[in-house]
């Protein structure tokens, strides 16, 4: 599904991601772990097109997307969340989600001027898609609540819903469980599993090891921008290079 070949990104003289090759299968949950500053977020930014790689290729279902702009990549079916997703606080949850399906619509200025039937139809579609996504993440009842009033964990789910409304094939989740309590983390893990069960390929960055070990089908470990291991949770746990990297660093992921 996602195939990365010799991906490198240099910032100034430093390699944030260096010569990483990896392949993620469709409908699987893939995790990327590593100490702080290991290049995980940069890796996501490269895949989603926010940054251009210095060298290497990124293939999604065989299409080379490494030179495409972020919005093009999104249209090809890559959705993502951020560590903090800025939502419009003073609007309702549903209002925040409607724009998520915008990329599948074509109405422009002219449609707005004449209030064309295409615009009306597409607005309906976006609304439906937003509801569907909200329902999928289990927040259908919050539709009309103002974002300001919902909890941290609910915001996380809204951010998921926003990514899902783009109709992705691959979702990149950047620390989806940061800042939520263990019980809620469990709930989010169930949601992520549900995404995979519904045919999405999931790729996540996470520091919560318990969650990763129980959730991921495959784990890739980055350290100083380089891939030092990949494999099943069991393999990763037993890998001496991984243990070395974690013990050598600040232990931020040891939980």
């Amino acid at each position: 599904m996602l195939k990365v070949e010799k991906l490198t990104k240099m910032f100034g003289g430093l390699a944030a991601v260096h010569d990483v090759s990896v392949e993620f299968e469709a409908r699987k949950i893939n995790a990327i772990i590593g100490p702080n500053g290991a290049g995980k977020s940069t890796f996501f930014n490269l895949i989603s097109g926010l940054r251009k790689p210095t060298s290497g290729r990124i293939l999604i279902d065989g299409h080379d997307v490494s030179r495409l702009r972020c919005d093009r990549v999104a249209r090809l079916g890559v959705g993502r969340t951020f560590q903090t997703t800025h939502l419009f606080e003073q609007a309702t949850v549903l209002d925040n989600l409607i724009v998520g399906h915008r990329l599948r619509t074509r109405s422009g200025l002219w449609d707005v001027l004449i209030n064309s039937s295409r615009l009306q139809r597409e607005e309906r579609e976006c609304r439906e898609k937003a509801r569907e996504a909200l329902d999928f993440v289990g927040l259908a009842h919050l539709e009309n609540r103002v974002v300001l009033d919902i909890s941290q964990e609910e915001r996380k789910r809204v951010a998921f819903a926003l990514a899902l409304a783009t109709e992705p094939k691959l979702v990149l989740l950047d620390e989806p469980a940061a800042g939520v309590n263990p019980e809620e983390t469990e709930g989010l893990a169930r949601l992520i599993r549900k995404m995979a069960e519904h045919g999405l390929t999931v790729c996540l960055i996470e520091h919560k090891m318990d969650m990763i070990m129980g959730l991921a089908d495959k784990i890739m470990v980055l350290n100083y921008g380089e891939k030092i291991a990949e494999g099943t949770p069991a393999e990763i746990k037993a890998n001496p290079a991984v243990i070395e990297a974690y013990l050598g660093s600040d232990h931020d992921a040891a939980a």
């Binding site: 926010l50 972020c70 249209r75 951020f82 419009f88 915008r102 783009t166």
Partner: peptide, 18 residues
């Protein structure tokens, strides 16, 4: 709504295919 999504952040808007 597209314009307002841009206000919420360039990166987020782009990742929504805008």
């Amino acid at each position: 709504r597209t314009f307002m999504a841009i206000r919420n952040g360039d990166a987020l808007a782009q990742s929504l295919g805008i």
